[in-house]
Design a binder for these strands. Sequence first.
DNA 1: GGCTACATGTAAGCGGTTACATGATTTA
DNA 2: TAAATCATGTAACCGCTTACATGTAGCC
Lengths: 180, 180
Amino acid sequence: MGTLRYAILGLLNRRSMTGYDLKKEFETTLSEFWSAKHSQIYPELKELTIANLVSFEVEISGEVLEKKVYSITPKGVALLHNWLLTNEETYLIPKDEFKLRLFFSDLLATKERLALIKAQYQLHLAKMKHLEDNLKKFASIPPQELNHLTDYLVLLGGIKREKMFCEWLEECQELLGKVE
Amino acid sequence: MGTLRYAILGLLNRRSMTGYDLKKEFETTLSEFWSAKHSQIYPELKELTIANLVSFEVEISGEVLEKKVYSITPKGVALLHNWLLTNEETYLIPKDEFKLRLFFSDLLATKERLALIKAQYQLHLAKMKHLEDNLKKFASIPPQELNHLTDYLVLLGGIKREKMFCEWLEECQELLGKVE
DNA sequence: GGCTACATGTAAGCGGTTACATGATTTA
DNA sequence: TAAATCATGTAACCGCTTACATGTAGCC
């Protein structure tokens, strides 16, 4: 797939930044749908530079510290645009360790099984509340500006996902509570 | 994590089988929440055997073909049971290439953006219908037997996930259709 | 006789994480 | 002046996929 390169190109298309800035973007803005550690980002930037998809300028921070500010090249923009259009996805079902546990949970006592579900429910409930908190950063809902609208829609997708999990886990709890 | 070993132990705890049978289980029964290729299964079975978590007996199929029928050992059952109880999950948000595309889709024309969403919608709609079809295999809903009930709940989770995606994509279509 | 399914393995490579490694700048 | 953050890299390893490799059994 090589999706990381497009995530980086997409971010650099919004604004020029350093590898460290990119790292922070993955930790915050993109964390809902993609992630990458700096140990993956720096080598990728090297490759993208060689392929002439990005370029960098060295900036001096303070007295001596050199930082590389990366920008997307016209060739990079073209590739990014092309990737956005050619959507040959077949949609891979994400692995779900909790469902695996649930599937084999006939080995457990009813009490243990319910505890497992409750713990998972708490995780998703907390996540949902956290995401709903993020709605506050939008001045109007839905946002009028396109850039903010896509941000909003992605956040909405996360909230819906967590809500769905919570509802499903409630149903699991109810049906499995009746057993024995 | 080393989750694969528990998936295999869980399956062997239900019934003894060959590596090939396991492969088919991953392709069918577990496909909604876990997957593994035979190139991963066979080496894992080797390791599990060395660790005395499973054992095998050679069976002759036809004239000469030897197949290894694996069974879980008491030590394996104990480890599986322990894994089910110690649920130290922190819940990792699954990567979502479509959301990444959507997030950067301000580069596209409205028409192109809507086409992207529609294609994704079709994928999830088809998946949902396919999963709903699978409900037919249950004699009663909800199933009475515990074993079938966990199967049912996992399936239900998949259907709910696809339904959620469809609803979200409809909202995306509506809000982005208004732009410009 | 030919095709599909059964059956079992290994090797190369990719995407990703964890750990190793270093040093400057800012802030409390 | 100590701690947190900024800043950039490499190395080892893990989980997984794709491809390589081989052969049998059952069915039409």
